[in-house]
């Protein structure tokens, strides 16, 4: 697939279970888009996410701010989205503070479940349309939505259908329909999934893939399998068929000696131990990846485990490199 085709829908929704690396994948996709000269906005949904930390610090506000050249970030805070909505829709300025208090927001979004999601998706729609109440208008080429975890995401994306059914008339119904159009149009929106090669995330991805079709009426794009213990760039891949019991420590020591260094018994133990660990973990991952591929129709893009314990910009750049290569492969 051409990268330009991948980025042809303006809105990319990144969905997945908590802890699978949605923000990391969102950030990497943002870099890929920015490298191609696009102006990108990553929208976190009502949370202080880790996105700004990947780009060196700061916090995200409701107004998009530039995190690195071409990459912007924002936090779609529900209270602010409601305030903006009331301003645009009902011209409420003076007493809107009362209506944006957490208690009112809790009330109105409980009274009308789905409203919260409509407000957030409505803000994405505004962004897509290049509109904004007050503030300056930002024209983004790509809007990456770092969506809520798992089941919440389905509720999130199916909210407009629910609300369109529940509210028969009025502005909210009309707006819900605009949002449904936006979500179902593959030229405008594409939902990509992120998973780990583990039991629960895979199971949830399969369910998400089915539910997106059944409940939201859209066909997902791809599934990114994050933190896979192997990479085609790496010689480690050859260890998958390695059998520790066939290993001859003497031979290894000799090879080391021939190459100009000395290996001790403890070193051999560590080499064999880590090879066994790698083999065992990647076997588990392979099994889950096979299950994933069997159960979803979408292409699966594997992203490597970066052998790190916390990611920074260079790691995200590496993932962006991987994505460029692997999207081209599908």
């Amino acid at each position: 697939m051409l990268l330009d085709d991948f980025f042809s829908p303006r809105i990319l929704v990144i969905a997945g279970k908590g802890g699978v690396g949605k923000t990391t994948v969102s950030a990497a996709l943002a870099l890929v888009a920015a490298r191609r000269g696009r102006k990108v906005c990553v929208a976190e949904i009502d949370r202080k996410g880790t996105l700004p930390r990947l780009f060196g610090g700061g916090t995200l506000g409701y107004q998009p701010s530039e995190l690195s050249p071409g990459v912007w970030g924002m936090n779609v805070i529900v209270e602010e989205a409601l305030a903006e909505y009331l301003k645009v829709q009902y011209h409420l300025n003076r007493i809107s503070r009362m209506f944006t208090s957490p208690q009112f927001v809790d009330y109105i979004t409980t009274a009308a479940p789905g409203l919260k999601d409509i407000l957030v998706l409505g803000k994405i729609w505004y962004l897509e349309q290049g509109r904004s109440a007050g503030g300056q208008v930002q024209d983004f080429d790509t809007i990456i939505v770092d969506a809520q975890a798992g089941g919440h995401m389905l509720t999130f994306l199916s909210a407009p259908m629910g609300l369109a059914d529940a509210v028969q008339v009025g502005p909210l119904r009309r707006q819900s329909e605009w949002i449904i159009d936006m979500l179902r149009d593959r030229e405008r929106t594409r939902v990509h999934m992120v998973t780990l090669a583990e039991e629960m995330p895979v199971q949830e991805t399969v369910e998400t893939s089915d539910a997106l079709r059944a409940r939201v009426g859209l066909v997902p794009g791809v599934a990114f399998a994050n933190a896979v213990y192997t990479s085609h760039h790496h010689s480690q891949g050859s260890l998958e068929r390695f059998r520790p019991e066939e290993l001859d420590a003497g031979v290894l020591k000799q090879e080391a000696k021939a190459a100009g260094f000395r290996l001790e018994d403890d070193d051999i133990t560590a080499l064999i131990g880590y090879a066994g660990f790698f083999k065992a973990r990647s076997a588990i991952q392979r099994r889950h990846l096979a299950g994933l591929r069997r159960n979803i129709e979408e292409p699966v893009i594997e992203l490597p485990f970066l052998f790190s314990a916390g990611l920074a910009l260079p790691d995200i750049e590496r993932l962006a490199d991987e994505i460029e290569v692997r999207v081209a492969d599908i």
Binding site: E255, A259, L271, Y274, A275
Partner: peptide, 12 residues
Amino acid sequence: DARLLAALLENE
């Protein structure tokens, strides 16, 4: 054998 050792070392 040498290539296997390289892979083992990189893995470690």
